[in-house]
Design a protein around this nucleic acid. Structure first.
Length: 263
DNA sequence: ATGGCTGGTAGAACCAGA
């Protein structure tokens, strides 16, 4: 019997991607799937495919047009709230408690717009404030917790295709990387992706739609993460990035990531 | 060659993503 498998995927519209999500569930067989950018109001969420495949427990936090997150699970879930770390009502977080009392937080950090200056670009200021609110929350956190999702920050040089060319590009600026490190330190969070694929090996989870051939140019970034409380991280036994999903028909620009735990 | 594309929504020479 294998352990518990928890996956996360920025799906860029669940309705446009329902067939490849089904394909991923068949291939990877996660026990829990966390989605970001579902882009659908809760009343229009496509429950049927998930119900048919045994994902009987579903927590939704959607909104019209943009953003939206969800947790789909074969394991019973207890809802344990939604944070508004953007402080503007956007649907960017949903939380669950798993049967073994582990907390699971599914988050979609704002992209932050184009200009990496909070005094000129309100979206960038909101992104930094969002991460600071997550940091305050982390400081007061005692429960074993797994936080997963699209953090929209690629912190390491080997998390981007060109550290030099992306230094002033939102997602890899020093101010974002410093804010993310404060967040990490606030709970001594363990970056599971880098526990299993240590630097300096390159690791990406997102490739732009605009490349003519995404795989040939390979200009990726590692924007999607799974971070665990230290004691919980010690129970992780495998971590995978499903890079090949980027080649599927009508793909998301992000690929799924999955961690398996010994429980 | 960091926007070259994509989705939602309207019915746009739109907006947003990152």
């Amino acid at each position: 019997m294998s352990g518990t498998r928890i996956a996360s995927w920025n799906i860029n519209s669940i309705r446009a991607r329902i067939d490849i999500v089904a394909r991923f569930l068949d291939e990877a067989s996660p026990d829990v799937l966390c989605l970001q950018e579902t882009k659908v109001e809760d009343g229009s969420f496509p429950h049927e495919m998930f119900a048919a495949k045994g994902y009987a427990h579903r927590l939704l936090a959607g909104q019209r047009m943009h953003h939206g997150v969800a947790i789909l699970s074969r394991l019973p879930l207890t809802a344990h709230g939604r944070h508004d770390w953007q402080d503007n009502g956007e649907a960017r977080h949903v939380g669950a408690c798993l049967p073994n009392s582990v907390r699971l937080e599914c988050v979609y950090v704002p992209a932050g717009g184009d200009v990496p200056d909070p005094s000129l670009n309100p979206k960038f200021a909101q992104k930094l404030a969002f991460v600071e609110r997550m940091t305050r929350w982390s400081e007061a956190l005692y429960e074993p917790t797994l936080i997963v999702g699209d953090f929209n920050i690629a912190p390491l040089e080997c998390d981007v295709w060109s550290h030099r060319q992306l230094l002033d590009v939102v997602s890899h600026t020093q101010v974002e990387i410093a804010a993310l490190e404060r967040l990490r330190a606030a709970h001594d969070w363990v970056d599971l992706g880098r526990r299993f694929v240590p630097p300096p090996e390159r690791l990406y989870t997102w490739w732009s739609y605009r490349a003519k051939d995404w795989a040939a140019s390979d200009r990726g970034r590692r924007l999607d993460h799974m971070w665990a409380s230290p004691a919980l991280a010690a129970t992780a036994i495998d971590h995978r990035v499903f890079q090949h999903c980027r080649s599927w028909l009508r793909p998301s620009d992000h690929v799924p990531i999955l961690t398996e735990f010994e429980w």
